[in-house]
């Protein structure tokens, strides 16, 4: 039972992360590789506030806000650069955040991590059981996904996608493309931060290793498999890539080998999809990362 709930909660949270990642990778079409750094900021904000006795709802919200501030900082180089340069800038951002979580020991306890992160309390009810936490996560996920669905099927998303295909053409129509890109960054990073905060709350313990390259490859693989710029694709990709590596759990492998095999599966999926189905299962043909 707990195992099934674990899978469901992970699917919920990763759906948000994949969707918000897809806004920047797929819809806006930039090589955004800082995904774990952004939700890591949300997770650390929540962990630090909640372990110091702050209201958990406020902490979740602030997790989103701080992730958004991180996203705005990241947007300074990201909006200025092109193509692979954005990839390198966002990857550098990931390493900087990771290095900060290791080195700001007074705040983050460095590699020791933060233990004892509480779960949220609703109207005096502490969500201690996994079932109640799952119901709470599901509700939050549905709310966020509905908001994102509305946003991604609004004229706003059409402009964002138009910027991806041809920014100069959009500019000639009198749109301030910079503002649109900035809004895409804010929306994506805010919700990503909230997912991160819930992650920290669910796991109860976080350390810098929870927000590094392996998590990035997981998120990127989910987006690629589902398809670029596809709402339902992101969710489908998440479900598939959460379930497939779970099969490995029934083999008795040592932790290092398990981590290696898991990583290898994601790598293989990326290569095979790029060679044979580069637009993913539900994605459309897009002009991404080219500018």
């Amino acid at each position: 039972m707990d195992y099934a709930l674990y899978i469901l909660i992970i699917i919920c949270l990763y759906s948000i992360i994949t969707l918000t990642g897809n806004i920047l990778l797929g819809y806006l079409g930039i090589l955004y590789l800082a995904i774990p750094a952004i939700y890591g900021i949300g997770a650390y904000t929540f962990a630090i506030l909640a372990t110091n006795g702050s209201n958990t709802f406020l902490a979740i919200f602030l997790g989103g806000i701080f992730a958004m501030i991180g996203g705005l900082l990241l947007s300074i180089p990201a909006l200025k650069l092109k193509s692979h340069y954005i990839g390198i800038a966002t990857l550098a951002f990931l390493f900087i955040i990771s290095s900060l979580t290791y080195n700001l020991k007074d705040l983050t306890r460095g590699s020791l991590g933060i233990p004892g992160i509480p779960r949220p309390t609703i109207f005096g009810l502490y969500l201690e059981s996994n079932l109640s936490f799952f119901i709470f996560t599901l509700i939050v996920t549905i709310i966020i996904c509905t908001i994102l669905y509305k946003i991604l099927h609004s004229p706003f998303a059409k402009v964002i996608e138009a910027i991806r295909e041809d920014e100069i053409a959009v500019k000639t129509l009198g749109k301030n493309t910079k503002i649109y890109k900035l809004q895409a960054f804010m929306i994506s990073t805010f919700f990503s931060g909230i997912a991160g905060a819930l992650f920290a709350s669910y796991l109860g313990f976080i350390n810098p290793q929870n927000f590094h390259i392996p998590q990035l490859t997981t998120a990127i693989s989910m987006i690629i498999v589902g398809g670029m710029a596809s709402f339902w694709g992101s969710i489908l990709g998440t479900v598939i890539l959460v379930l497939v590596p779970e099969i490995l759990r029934f083999l008795t492998l040592s932790p290092d080998i398990l981590a290696g095999v898991r990583l290898g599966i994601y790598g293989l999926i990326l290569i095979l999809f790029m060679l044979f189905k580069p637009n993913g299962l539900m994605g459309k043909r897009t002009n991404i990362f080219s500018k």
Binding site: G267, I288, F289
Partner: peptide, 25 residues
């Protein structure tokens, strides 16, 4: 399109890393 070799190279990076992780820990 430019993103295909780019993501492909990320996939290669991950596979090489996973091979080393499996063999050497």
């Amino acid at each position: 399109q430019v993103f295909i070799p780019l993501v492909l190279s990320i996939g290669i990076a991950i596979i090489l890393q996973s091979i080393v992780l499996i063999i050497y820990g």
